[in-house]
Write a protein that binds this DNA or RNA. Structure first.
Lengths: 165, 165
DNA sequence: TTGGAATGTCAACAAAGCTGACATAAACTG
DNA sequence: CAGTTTATGTCAGCTTTGTTGACATTCCAA
């Protein structure tokens, strides 16, 4: 339980405590992706499709390049995913109005429906964890995660958050 | 900053807050694996090798079956990883004393050296995040992660922790 | 008009998952 | 003891998702 708050002020920095945190991250991430993975397994899609759908939903009209920066994969890898999503009518890619080299990506109605299904599942898990842990724990959770990000990703993370309220 | 601790007692459960937590998990996990990944990229190993090495180091003498349960992959997949590690002299596989069907896995000196190198890098990242966020945040971080795990993995996570102090 | 940026696409390949089938040895069970 | 189950390993083939490298197109900007 409260092993983290040991009497010794330095105890939470022991190698052993850090190691436990590393393992907690590993096991929790499995739970974090388990529900959407189960849904996706029934279709011809995987986690890469989920990620693309998530961030397109989050920033409608985003460009391919912007998405590349967020997802941290090559354009070839992302393109394969986007192509299937466009072919299957879940994502719509329109030529940019200002810069016609760019493509603006948006979910179609079908795409939004799948996004909803996936994020409902994932949110239910996170919501349950938040409820179990309580609001103070959630604040700490977010604080540690933010500190763990690479600086450029933290910037992108904050940019997305500022974007919508 | 303190968006999570809103005045409204329910605010931390809004879809928007949950969504931010989901994105924080995604971005933070990238940071979490970035340093070992960089080291592994210079060798012929990947994240799968790191995971195997980590848990063998954590539970010396563990069996293949136990490792399968922790890692959640197929024996074929794990076997491919273990075979290369044994061939390269990083892991030693010995026939079980009580049950001769089992193989007991241990790191060799070389294996322990690599494990040290990888976990030093990963621990430095987590330690820095812990230092930035502070001990209370760390406690909450751990609490939420535990609540997020699948029940059977939470059991395994706790079993590993109890094992060593 | 020329250079560079954004995008798309082809080809080849690698890591790491998966299923299915089968072999072997050891342990367990009736 | 015979038969079954368990633990492990291995072969073959497939999938997803990542990678490089090369090249074409479009089009903005100097």
């Amino acid at each position: 339980m409260g092993q983290v708050q040991a009497d010794d002020a330095q105890a939470y920095l022991s190698d052993e405590q850090i190691r436990q945190g590393i393992e907690a991250m590993f096991f929790a991430y499995r739970g974090f992706t388990a529900d959407p993975d189960r849904i996706l397994a029934t279709m011809a899609y995987g986690r890469a499709h989920h990620r693309a759908i998530h961030f397109i939903a989050r920033s409608p009209g985003t460009t391919v390049n912007n998405l590349l920066g967020i997802l941290g994969v090559t354009k070839q890898s992302l393109n394969r995913v986007l192509r299937t999503l466009v072919e299957d009518g879940l994502v719509e890619s329109t030529v940019g109005q200002i810069d016609k080299r760019e493509r603006n990506l948006r979910l179609t109605e079908d795409g939004a429906r799948l996004e909803q299904q996936l994020s409902d599942a994932q949110r239910a898990r996170v919501r349950a964890a938040y409820n179990t842990a309580g609001p103070d724990a959630v604040a700490g959770f977010r604080k540690v995660l933010e500190a763990m990000m690479e600086p450029d990703l933290r910037r992108k993370y904050n940019a997305i958050r500022e974007h919508d309220q």
